[in-house]
Design a protein around this nucleic acid. Structure first.
Length: 458
RNA sequence: GUGGUUGUAGCUCAGCUGGUUAGAGCGCUGGAUUGUGGUUCCAGAGGUCGCCGGUUCGAACCCGGUCUUCCACCCCA
């Protein structure tokens, strides 16, 4: 009995028209990565487990796809470990490799391993799939592409400024107008926690704050209280919930609030530098906005934090994110190398472009010219013509069999071929070919010797 | 990991409180039309009703399990 074919949940097949659209996005992103001076690298799909485990927090560890060891792996497990039935301990014994969870940690590993051949500052880009053992839902897959650009070996804030410009350049080029680049700084979050006297609960504090737009002021306060943050501390943080106005006004409020915190003031200073620089340079279509509730990737970010929100009206999680991490390569033994990077979520960008109808129409043109097949003799002449068209870079084909005209025309139609060429008996006699423009239905006749005359009209 | 949701022809979906041979539109194939498609007309093919088990005289429909889809939470691109 034939088995019903299927694919694992959270994975997808990509058909020709989808590939065309994905390639279009990849192309735009890659183009701008290059013009900003980034160089490509690639790393393996799977890494040694110890490279990945513990880098993304407990939640992250759970979402890492583990690869079972080869061979008779269970026989090597001692009775105690096996009998304890503790998944975490057992997993370490039977799985030593895991699928890449993001591109940043493998990149950090790469930098440390190749530090002697790298010229710092090193600007690298990387476009590869990553895997997460997550439950799929809107815009979330178990296999998806990330497009990362990171700079290591420079602590200059100019890098942050450039990365914001890079976001703007890519989304403007994709005609996705109205994206919001949200900006925050880890130092500000730490400063606030310090000022209100909840420094030891920084993570809980920021995680709760991050949910402000989702559960509201009261919800956030409730969660903070539940996490053990005192009422007086929450009361002190009250001005945060009322931050409003443009970036300058928010900066002024933050300056005041964080005046007594050295770290917090440093964060405000950094934020101000970036905001001022971008104000001078001007963005094409994106909006840069301070958002103190932004608290992503707390596990390794130490300075700036970025997140890109889809244009208004599109219900979609963030379509990009990034930030500065001072200590990432430290885990692998290389100290004092600062890095800052951003990521584009290809699959989500795809969904947004689709929803807004922003893909160029020409993308689904996979064949420029199709020659109708009228029989063996005519087909030979057609193939000669097609060969010469191909030599000139025109994608063209001869219908492989002498099917009914209707069928051949229908095929051309479905493939969205803009030009159909007819070479039948009449044309053979007069050494000509007829070109039918499918959109208008108009037909023109060219001499077989005048291929360039036709190519010029394309 | 928690909660909910979905599964019927290649695709999008009907199918009333369980009742005989499970339907439509689109698509596909053939013909009307021997060199003209996207807009006509006629005919035809195509379904273990996700899978396994249970209740019943009888299940696409009810019950249990399982897989899948989509959504929310957690987390995140």
């Amino acid at each position: 009995m034939a088995q019903k074919p299927n694919i694992p949940k959270g994975t997808r097949d990509f058909s020709p028209s989808e590939i065309a659209k994905r390639d279009y996005i990849f192309g735009v992103i890659k183009k701008h990565f290059k013009t900003f001076g980034f160089q490509p690298i690639e790393t393996p799909s799977f890494e040694n487990s110890e490279t990945l485990m513990g880098k993304y927090g407990d939640e992250g560890d759970r979402l890492i796809f583990k690869i079972l060891n080869s061979g008779d792996f269970l026989s090597k497990v001692d009775e105690d470990t096996y009998g304890a039935k503790d998944s975490k301990t057992l997993t370490q014994k039977i799985s030593e490799k895991a699928l890449r969870y993001d591109l940043t940690v493998p990149f950090a590993r790469y930098v440390v391993m190749h530090q002697n051949e790298i010229d710092f500052p090193f600007k690298r880009y990387q476009i590869q799939p990553v895997w997460r053992a997550d439950r799929p839902q809107k815009g979330r897959f178990r296999e998806f592409y990330q497009c990362d650009a990171d700079v290591v070996g420079s602590d200059s804030l100019l890098q942050e400024v450039e990365l914001i410009q890079l976001y703007d350049a890519v989304f403007s080029d994709l005609k996705m107008e109205g994206v919001t680049i949200k900006l925050n700084n880890r130092k500000i979050l730490a400063g606030i926690a310090e000022v209100i006297g909840a420094g030891h609960l920084l993570v809980d504090f920021t995680v709760a704050l991050d949910k402000l737009d989702k559960i509201g002021v009261e919800g956030v306060q409730k969660e903070m209280l539940a996490k053990g943050i005192s009422e007086t501390a929450i009361a002190k943080a009250a001005p945060l919930f009322e931050l409003s106005g443009d970036n300058t006004e928010q900066l002024n409020s933050l300056k005041e609030l964080l005046a007594d915190s050295e770290e917090g003031s440093k964060g405000v200073e950094e934020l101000e530098f970036i905001i001022d620089a971008i104000a001078n340079l001007e963005l094409k279509s994106a909006a840069l906005k301070i958002d103190v509730t932004l608290a992503r990737g707390l596990n390794y970010y130490t300075g700036a934090i970025f997140e890109v929100g889809a244009p208004k009206g599109v219900k979609m999680g963030s379509i990009g994110g990034g930030g500065r991490y001072d200590d990432l390569t430290g885990i692998f033994g290389l100290k004092n190398v600062s890095g800052v990077g951003i990521s584009f979520g290809l699959d989500r960008i795809y969904l947004v472009l689709e929803e807004l109808g922003l893909f160029p129409e020409t993308l689904d043109r996979s064949l420029d010219v199709l020659c109708i097949n009228f029989g063996d003799k005519e087909a030979m002449t057609a193939l000669t013509l097609v060969t010469q068209l191909r030599n000139r870079g025109v994608s063209s084909d001869v219908y492989p069999s002498k099917a009914k005209m209707q069928k051949q025309m229908k095929y051309a139609n479905n493939r969205k071929v803009p030009y159909v060429i007819l070479i039948g008996e009449n044309e053979m006699d007069t050494k000509t070919f007829v070109v039918k423009e499918m959109a208008s239905g108009e037909q023109r006749t060219f001499a077989l010797s005048d291929i360039d005359g036709f190519v010029k009209t394309l």
